[in-house]
Simulated assay, not measured.
Amino acid sequence: MATLITQSTELLLLFFLIITFIQSGLDKLMDWNGNLSWLKGHFEKTPLKNTVPLLLGIILFLEILAGIFCCIGVFQIINSRDSSFALYGAILSCIVLLMLLFGQRIAKDYEGAKTIAVYFIPAIFLVFLLQS
């Protein structure tokens, strides 16, 4: 119980990332064609236009992996106070968010880029906490 209190910030941030990335990955899996269609239109005037299916698959894989690492991190913190997987999950989450930010900026979707920045703040804060 003491771990839940002393590491509550880290655990809450991990749950935030788990919800964010597992939900996003599942959405991509459940509606692959819809996501692909929307993204092809979103990137049709960019250098990324011919690689959208590949990039969507990469993002899907990395989002699910980040969510899984964060889940393992929660169990590690609670059971052994080890935060190695939590840190891996937080770092991978930041990398995925940077990839998404890059895509939004390339597509000149500045409002979408702002939204990604909002997600990046708690993710990078978690990296900071877990490195301390």
Score class of each variant (00 low, 15 high):
V118E: 09
Y88G: 08
F85T: 14
G67Y: 14
I91Y: 12
F125H: 04
S84Y: 13
F120D: 08
G103Y: 01
C71E: 07
L129P: 02
P53C: 06
L4R: 00
F125V: 12
C71K: 05
F15D: 05
I19L: 14
T51R: 04
D31K: 09
L130A: 03
F120Y: 05
L130R: 10
V74L: 02
F69H: 11
L29N: 09
M99W: 06
D27L: 08
S24A: 15
N79L: 13
A66H: 04
D82C: 08
L39S: 05
L100R: 01
I5Y: 00
A113R: 00
G25S: 14
D82T: 15
I121P: 03
L56K: 01
N35K: 06
M99A: 11
T51A: 09
L55W: 05
S80H: 07
A90E: 05
Q76M: 08
L54M: 13
F61D: 04
L11S: 01
N79T: 10
N79A: 15
V127D: 07
I116E: 05
K45G: 06
A90P: 12
G89I: 13
E63P: 12
R81I: 14
P47G: 08
I72V: 15
V118A: 05
L17Q: 13
T3P: 03
L60F: 13
S84Q: 13
G25F: 09
V96S: 12
E44F: 02
H42D: 00
P47Y: 03
G41L: 02
S80W: 14
L54P: 05
P47T: 03
I72W: 02
I22P: 11
W38R: 09
I64K: 10
R81F: 14
C70F: 01
S83Q: 10
G34P: 02
I18P: 07
S80V: 12
V127Q: 06
L11A: 02
L36C: 10
